[in-house]
Write a protein that binds this DNA or RNA. Structure first.
Length: 227
DNA sequence: CGTGTTTGACCGGCGC
DNA sequence: GCGCCGGTCAAACACG
């Protein structure tokens, strides 16, 4: 079924919640994209696993994270336990992603890929207007690499292994839900993340990461504090 | 009292 | 130039 191929993402990993498969299985993945985001940091991966029991997941198969093609395993709580999901993550070897230096999910290029790839689906369907795309492109020169993903979760902030400090909250016009702004509290680390509820389905949380951590997840920080 | 959050003010980019 | 909007700042506040 062709519609499953774009259930992943436009500028987020998932596009529309009602297009997410609800069964375990392999589904076609956009042929010009890979998952998880190339260059995606561990925080997102841990966040995925932390919310696994209550959300839909996209898991890349280790053998299929190639340049242009990947298959995707979807699973839900009903089919898999948390442990199973965690082991699935291990098997997926997400951390091999750094082998490519370019992160196509950053800087709006994901949207570019989708808008030019998918025949019969226009930008309007994707929720990205031409105006918005112009804005995204205009920001490229100043933005850190960004990517975001959408998860079904009661919690707004997912535990991704890093320590964050909230520095702002804003109700943005596009969602009518407050968007929260967080910064990594580690010195010299400028990674930020935004958290907001999905306008069309408030049960879903959209988490956007910007930048790359210059340190490992919070363990080292906690160690230094606790000792 | 230290740490983290809240929230209104402010700023810069962008479209008209 | 003006107004809108998203993002950030920072003082006030809450909490342990």
């Amino acid at each position: 079924m062709s519609t499953t191929s774009h259930s992943i993402v436009h500028h987020s990993l998932f596009e529309e919640q009602d297009q997410m498969p609800t069964q375990i299985g392999f589904f076609p993945f956009p042929t010009n994209l890979t998952f998880p985001p190339l260059g995606c940091h561990q925080s997102s991966l841990k966040a995925f696993s932390s919310i696994a029991p209550s959300s839909s997941l996209v898991i890349s198969q280790q053998d299929s994270v190639s340049n242009l093609t990947a298959e995707t395993l979807f699973s839900t709580t009903a089919q898999k336990s948390r442990e199973d999901l965690t082991s699935s993550f291990r098997g997926a070897q997400f951390l091999s992603l750094h082998r490519l230096s370019v992160n196509p999910w950053a800087l709006g290029e994901v949207a570019d890929c989708f808008s030019c790839k998918r025949s019969g689906i226009d930008d309007h369907h994707l929720g990205i207007s031409a105006t918005k795309m112009k804005k995204i492109k205009a920001r490229r020169k100043v933005r850190e690499p960004r990517f975001c993903f959408k998860t079904m979760s009661d919690m707004d902030v997912l535990d991704d292994g890093y320590k964050w400090r909230k520095y702002g909250q804003k109700v943005v016009k596009s969602t009518h839900h407050p968007r929260s702004y967080y910064r990594c509290i580690q010195d010299n680390c400028r990674v930020k993340k935004r958290v907001e509820r999905f306008a069309e389905d408030p049960r879903m949380v959209i988490t956007t990461y910007e930048g790359r951590h210059v340190h490992s997840p919070s363990n080292d920080l906690e160690d230094s504090i606790s000792t």
